[in-house]
Amino acid sequence: MPVRIGYTMMTEQAGPLELVAHLVGAERAGFDFSVISDHSFPWLDSQGHAPYAWSVLGAAAQATSRIPLMTYVTCPTFRYHPAVVAQKAATLQILSRGRFRLGLGSGENLNEHVVGAGWPAAHVRLEMLEEAVGIIRRLFGGGYVSHHGAHYDVENAKLWDLPEEPPPIGVAVSGPRSCALAGRYADLVIATEADAELLRRFDAQGGAGKPRVGQLPVCYDPDRDAAVARAHDQFRWALGGWGVNSELPGPAGFEQASQHTRPEDVAASIPCGDDVDAFVEAVRPYAQAGFTEVALVQIGGDRQAAFLDWAEAKLLPALGRL
């Protein structure tokens, strides 16, 4: 089976109206699915945006008819209580007529710091995520739910509008503990690196046969130098790795952490320009690692239309043969 190719609504680089328009274009271009980031801050000031992802998703569900939707990812532990996430996800599944998947993760300080709840150690955040997933699943099951756990209290909650089928739950992984959590509780696994070991750990904990969704930044432009410059300006933060990126509290921290990252460093990690073969080769490691889906992130909020035209004409047909 060929790898399914998705489109990313990157809320850090475009406003809400533009994001919906871009997704309409992605559906028309033939992308297999879509994902959306859920942030309260961009990583760098140069990106310049952070609209509320769930409002964008509601509009996107009405503006499109075919393309699946997915959070990539929502943190159900700090900014959002898990009972509220369950209500949002159930509503969106109805609005999208069954096209929504709920991608969850343990969060980033960049976004979760805004509620002033502190930023505990990674193992505590994973405990919170595990408890949150359990609450969400119980609410998806219908009826009244009360819960008094180590991190959350739920008192007599109920989802009054439930879809015929609850949205599948995906869990983002980055190491052994998150892989174990995802294998036990998730319907699919999410990762941002083409790391086969993560998928092996997921399979060993019960994930065998389930979808596995990756993500890859790309920077299309007929002028490769312009593409490299834009990727460096807006995406150099990505080279820091999850251990750094989950801890920094704001754009100033990412600016400082990436100040010595050179354009050539970014170009070595992110395909830039309009060489179709280079983009295909960047996706290939995900296919080889065992990913069934890869969502592309086109860097640059003002370059989406050109990217979508190029993807429809050249890139998607080439990736279909991967």
Rank of each mutant, 00 (worst) to 15 (best):
V73W: 07
S96F: 02
R66Y: 10
V56D: 03
T64S: 13
E112L: 08
T74S: 15
A89D: 03
F78T: 03
T91H: 09
T74E: 09
L92E: 01
R99M: 09
N109D: 08
D45C: 07
F100W: 04
R99Y: 05
T77F: 02
S65Q: 15
L92D: 02
Y52E: 12
N109V: 11
L102D: 05
A89Q: 03
R97K: 15
A61C: 04
H113D: 02
A53T: 10
D45N: 09
C75V: 02
L95E: 06
D45T: 08
L95D: 05
I67L: 14
S96K: 06
G98M: 03
A89G: 02
N111D: 12
Q62Y: 11
I94D: 00
V114W: 04
A50G: 07
A90T: 00
Y80N: 00
T64P: 02
P68W: 11
Q47K: 01
Y72T: 03
V84L: 09
A89Y: 04
K88S: 08
V56I: 14
R99G: 04
L110A: 07
V56Q: 00
A61T: 05
T74N: 13
Q47E: 14
R101K: 13
R99L: 08
L92R: 02
A89S: 01
T64I: 13
A60W: 04
V85A: 09
Y72R: 07
R99E: 03
C75G: 10
L57H: 07
I94Y: 01
T74L: 15
A90Q: 08
A83M: 04
S55L: 14
T74V: 14
L92Q: 01
H81Y: 04
N111S: 15
H49Q: 12
R99D: 03
V114Q: 12
R97P: 00
G98C: 12
L92S: 00
P82C: 13
R99H: 11
V85I: 14
D45P: 03
A89K: 05
K88T: 06
S96W: 02
K88I: 09
K88C: 08
E108F: 15
P76M: 09
L69W: 06
R79C: 02
N111T: 11
S55I: 13
H81I: 01
A90C: 01
R66H: 14
T71K: 08
N109K: 12
T71A: 06
F78Q: 02
Q47D: 11
A83L: 04
A60P: 00
Q93A: 06
L110T: 04
L104I: 12
R97Q: 14
A59H: 11
N109Q: 15
S106L: 09
G48W: 03
V84N: 06
H113V: 11
S65C: 13
A53C: 13
T64R: 10
A83K: 01
G58R: 07
A53F: 06
A60G: 07
Q62F: 14
H49C: 07
F100C: 07
H113N: 09
S96G: 01
G103S: 08
P76Y: 03
G103F: 00
S96I: 06
S46L: 00
H49Y: 10
Q47T: 05
Y80C: 04
S106R: 14
R66D: 10
S55F: 09
R66M: 10
T77K: 11
T77P: 05
I67M: 12
S106A: 15
V73Y: 13
